[in-house]
Write a protein that binds this DNA or RNA. Structure first.
Lengths: 219, 219
DNA sequence: TTATATTTTTAGATTAATCTAAAAATATTT
DNA sequence: AAATATTTTTAGATTAATCTAAAAATATAA
């Protein structure tokens, strides 16, 4: 039996390993989880005891096969619930995360499978993040940051690199939804902002920060 | 903030008060919750501290207005999720309880409201139990136990008085679903069993135990 | 390569939720 | 009404998850 809290640690470790492609440090986990480093050390011992992580004092941790499977399943649940909340219950993409954070802990494999079927096996969540299948396989996709598009290149918005409500609300305000068509008209070296055209309609100037957080599939 | 566990105690107290129309005793709660009486006493102190129950040593407890509102909302969530699981995810009525038991604790009023709307404001759950609205009002309905029907009386199955999987599976096996039409053909004093006709088709003999656990709306 | 800074772990407490065993209060029965 | 039985509470522990402060290990820099 894996507790709610243990699951959250596994997710945090997964997230950190994914980003850094290397073992997660105690401090990094404590930052990710908003807990003290001492609490993390305690938890790492427990997770190692349960064979969910590989842990050596002072060396950082990696997930075991078992831990990785659990973490992947949590991400699967989380993202499926996000799709449900957005598509079926009409929540907006900046509201779904917090509720999915609770729903992901519901323990029932059958529920996950049925939900997946009900949603017709979505491959990506409302933020464009891939949803692993029941075997834990993620769908990958060629995507670049808007930042990496040169003048006159075109593409489709397929995901976000930052998930904060304020960023998502900013995007909504400017109709920068998933699926939006973007053409880079001009790049300004001065502040690294870009003038773009959106959906063959209005032109728009986007800051460097925005361009660094939008994933684009070139077209 | 009310914990998961505290919520379960509130539900148990609600259930007991509903049944007995009187204050719930420590022992009754411990039985309902499968915990020791000592644990219950501890918890009662905490719930009283939070103004969720009225508690006097050795006297049993009742819910306060606040406690009652919380308990009613939990029941609302539980029953709405049961409807969702059955109607949208094709679970059977003997499977929905355990999963709803987890889902009911998800904290989001907006989620409950949206779910209610998505399900088109159902008034009863898959077992025929009433679903309170957002204000906590239950829909009542005239119903009697099949046991109370006399020979030649007719009615519709509208609910169950026992929620065990084995009973629900038994009913499935005999097509005794909600909405089934029943006519009492004959009552046997010997063992209090009844011969009935189901949906104007097959005749069936039901034991006293079954007759005591089926709610019927006379027609 | 020694001194300094940072990270990680240990030690010792705290809180929620639970337990068993014993004591106290209430209820029942003769 | 006294004796017995039952229920409830208290006392004292335990476990998971957390904390702060101090000690130990590792990393960085002069």
């Amino acid at each position: 039996m894996v507790s709610h809290t243990e699951e959250n640690y596994l997710k945090a470790i997964f997230k950190l390993s994914e980003k850094d492609k290397i073992s997660a440090s105690t401090n990094a986990i404590s930052k990710e989880m908003n807990t003290s480093a001492a609490s993390v050390t305690d938890m790492l011992k427990r997770l190692a005891e349960k064979d969910l992580i590989n842990y050596e004092k002072y060396k950082g941790v990696t997930l075991t096969k078992k831990g990785n499977t659990l973490a992947t399943n949590l991400i699967r649940c989380h993202r499926l619930w996000e799709v449900f909340l957005l598509e079926k219950l009409d929540f907006s993409w900046d509201e779904v995360h917090d509720i999915a954070e609770q729903l992901e802990h519901i323990k029932s494999d059958k529920l996950t499978e049925r939900l997946d079927r009900f949603l017709e096996y979505p491959k990506f969540d409302p933020h464009g993040d891939p949803i692993p299948d029941a075997e834990g396989n993620f769908t990958y996709r060629k995507q670049v940051l808007l930042n990496d598009l040169k003048e006159n290149e075109k593409g489709i918005v397929v995901g976000v690199n930052e998930h904060s409500s304020s960023f998502l609300q900013y995007l909504d305000r400017h109709h920068l939804n998933l699926g939006a068509q973007i053409k880079v008209l001009e790049h300004f070296d001065y502040d690294s902002s870009k003038k773009i055209n959106l959906n063959d309609q209005a032109d728009l100037i986007l800051s460097s920060k925005v361009c660094q957080n939008l994933f684009i599939q070139k077209s």
